[in-house]
């Protein structure tokens, strides 16, 4: 097994997904198969390959430090379920 049911549960919780036991079983099977498939790459010899951080062979895309127009507060909250002049209204967050 490439991945355990417990690990799938953990990842689901990190992603805030509520899964019932049947879904967990199904996903564990699917993810195990996906990881086994990706594992085929291990058969290649990559010892001479430089690790890469990006698929595009490019570096250094910059913008100058110049202010561009922003949204108005109303535009920013146009799709929000509970817009408010004080900000996006969300359930109270207690620290």
């Amino acid at each position: 097994m490439k991945i355990s049911r417990t690990e799938v549960e953990h990842v689901a919780r990190l992603a805030r997904l509520a899964l019932d036991p049947a879904e967990l079983d199904a996903l564990t099977g699917d993810m195990d198969a996906i990881l086994a498939y990706v594992d085929q790459l291990k058969r290649l010899d990559t010892s001479a390959i430089v690790p890469t951080a990006h698929a595009v062979p490019m570096a250094n895309a910059f913008r100058p430090d110049e202010v561009r127009p922003s949204f108005t507060p109303e535009q920013a909250q146009q799709n929000a379920p509970a817009p408010d002049p004080a900000g996006f209204r969300v359930p109270r967050v207690i620290e």
Binding site: A76, A82, A86, G87, R89, V90, P91, R92, V93
Partner: peptide, 13 residues
């Protein structure tokens, strides 16, 4: 702190 907003927090981005 506003009246009626005790159940809410507000996000300023």
């Amino acid at each position: 702190e506003a009246p009626g907003s005790s159940q809410s927090s507000f996000v300023d981005l």
